[in-house]
Design a protein around this nucleic acid. Sequence first.
RNA 1: GGGCCGGUAGCUCAGUCCGGCAGAGCGUCUGACUCUUAAUCAGACGGUCGGGGGUUCGAAUCCCUCCCGGCCCGCCA
Length: 536
Amino acid sequence: MSERYVFWADAVADEIEASDPAEPIVIKGGISPSGVPHLGNMNEVMRGHFVAAVLRERGHEVRHVFTTDDRDPLRSLPRLLADLDGTLVELGDVDAGALGRNLGRPYTDIPDPFGCCDSYGDHFSNLINTSAESLGVPVELISTTELYTDGTLEPSIIKLLERREEARNLLADFQATVDSQYVPFNAICRQCGLVTETITDVDLEAGSVAYRCDGITAGNRDIEGCGDEGEVSLREGKLPWRFEWPAQWRALGVDFEPFGKDHAEGSWPSGRRIAESLLDTEPPVPLTYEWFTLDEEPFSSSAGNVVLVEEVLELIEPEVLRYFFAKDPARARDFSIERIDQLVDEFDRFEAIYFEEITASEEEHARAERVYPFLVDHIEPNRVRLPYTFAAVLGMTDDPELRKAIAQREGHICEDTPSSADADALERVERARRWARRTDNAFNYELKRARIPDVPIDEKTGAALQELAEIAASGADGEELQAAIYELARSHEIDVGDFFATGYRLFLDREEGPKLGPFLAHLDREFVVRRLRREC
RNA sequence: GGGCCGGUAGCUCAGUCCGGCAGAGCGUCUGACUCUUAAUCAGACGGUCGGGGGUUCGAAUCCCUCCCGGCCCGCCA
């Protein structure tokens, strides 16, 4: 019946169990360490993670591996890079020329532009690992280059080369450009290090292939080969992606793999058939996920539209971000930094439904009941969540005690909540303040201390402000000032809303802001008095 | 052109697998609290569930078809 809620990860886990996998169950993800691993890439990590968590809950042993496809050749120079701390760096700030000379070579053969890791590939693989860990997902990172050099992929390579005729025919069903010369293996040129596709001979007894270094098409440019003709072993080359993927499944015994929708009609159907009919291995259970956009635009390293996991975690708690990835993977979504408050509100509500603090429909409750435990490390009924935009308002003051006092006054923190819960709750203030600054939105209050904003003030309002200045000078507290604002508006026959707006404009140059009386009381008295008299 | 996946309120999303009164939050509007300023509370407004057809006692849900968007059908991942 309809009140039963099926978490998508449960449905996938059912499918995996039905495929009768050996223990441990192997879940894989993988990306090419071509540059900054952005939030979109975390689909690859998180979709697998939820399925792994469900399977572990069911008592299975699970290996969650993640291949970094680091033997892929560098095809274009990313405009943005990132150092190991996750700080974004323009291409121009590193030795772009040195990178450019390495186009067409495997990532693991290219020096790290930051000089801190063994190679370009290692550098960005490290970043992938860091991002996954910051989301609380420990993955077993596997270098594809190592799978080649340590011989793990060799049996699959031999199989494919033995049956290269079949491989060619099979691939031709999916790709129109496969010709009679096609060999499902690329060599790394011994002279210049380029990945070259021209294989002139295969000698399986010697375990080698002969190649001619004809160059490589990378993006929209051709990289010229050195023309070298030589031989390399099967560990000194690379399978084309369509073959590499199923070879990884076979070598690692992969039972489940999520992938982006770009693979759904391309490499997945061919990979499945390659696995079944050429590699004699069972393909994994698939899961296609839709891509999401970042503030309405596609993620793009080249266009600079990227955000790192670490950046997002400066704005929201990890459990909120995990919540985003727990949503239906089939649906395309926008991840909006501008409106990240909506996501947080949605999470807070979801959490409150789980703890039965608010009423909700049966469906909502069933969903929260099932999914929420996968979002947090510990289920903590005593946690305190400040509403996100309220937290942003609290960010106007740097004083931690004042923040706490206001939160208490507004009833978000009780006297008897444990101080650790208070501290957790108040951490959100820092996050929300960063958000307000980053997006420069309505919560990014800035006190216009240096110069008085240009505010038109009529006679009545001027008189009322004079009186307010006197009240402020007399040492009135926040609530007294707040009451005075109302009373003065009435006694001077000014619209209350207009009078408040004038007050906000004098101090913030905005029409709205935090509760005005307490806000003014927090500022130094002399400044407030002089500003109300419009003397500074 | 062919294939795959999406399209539910202004916005963000549940609900679609397994047919049973069209839902939530936010926003908007109105009212209340003898102080609207992240207010709070109460209420209201808000829908061709992308369009059309079919199956059914009954369709957002199943089937067919069309429209729109993304992706794939070159290379690469």
